[in-house]
Computed example of a mutant assay.
Amino acid sequence: MNVPDHLGYTAEHEWLEIDGDLARVGITAYATDALGDIVFVELPEAGAMLAAGAPCGEVESTKSVSDLYAPADGEVLERNEAVLADPGLLNADPFGSGWLFRMRVVGSPDLLDAAGYAALTTGPATDG
């Protein structure tokens, strides 16, 4: 599974690429694989104030509808209009052209590093 080292992750499968107080936000390859073919995305509007952990949009696939959760406190600066027009970008390139929105982050978000996220998505080891 692709888990880029330079990103922070939430337990709800969002990623953040943080640069100072600005962040680009998306959902992980693990999430897109679990969802299947994504057919619709609802994103927060520019100017919306988000609270970490609160629902802020939806991702709809041929299998199900899943809430999108705010990965941090802050203000939405820009939505990815390309993903709104072509939700399949999430499946094709979740860490690149399939980003969802940019935000100004307030405070320090509680994020997992790549190793922590990989451990979360592979589950605990068992003794057989």
Rank of each mutant, 00 (worst) to 15 (best):
A23E: 02
G36K: 06
G26C: 08
V3N: 08
V39W: 00
D37H: 09
P4K: 04
V25Q: 03
L22E: 14
V39Q: 02
V25C: 10
I18A: 04
L35M: 15
A31S: 12
T28S: 12
L16K: 02
G20Y: 07
D37M: 09
D21I: 12
V39H: 00
P4W: 02
P4N: 08
W15R: 06
G8D: 07
G36M: 04
E12N: 14
A23K: 05
H6N: 15
Y9D: 08
H13M: 12
D21Y: 01
E17H: 13
D21L: 08
A29R: 15
L35D: 02
A34C: 08
D33T: 13
A34V: 10
G36Q: 05
E12C: 09
Y30M: 11
N2K: 15
R24K: 14
L7M: 07
L16M: 07
V39K: 01
D5C: 02
A29P: 01
V25P: 05
R24V: 14
L16P: 00
L7Q: 04
D5W: 00
I38H: 01
H13R: 11
R24W: 00
E14P: 05
T10H: 07
G36L: 04
R24A: 13
A23L: 06
G8M: 10
Y30Q: 14
G36N: 06
G8N: 09
D19E: 14
E12S: 15
A29K: 14
D19W: 00
G8L: 09
I18M: 11
V3G: 04
R24I: 11
V3M: 09
T10S: 12
A31T: 09
V39Y: 00
L7E: 05
I18P: 01
D21P: 08
V3T: 14
D33Q: 13
W15F: 09
L35Q: 05
T28I: 08
D19M: 03
E12Q: 15
I18D: 03
D21E: 15
A11D: 14
L7G: 04
I18R: 14
T32W: 00
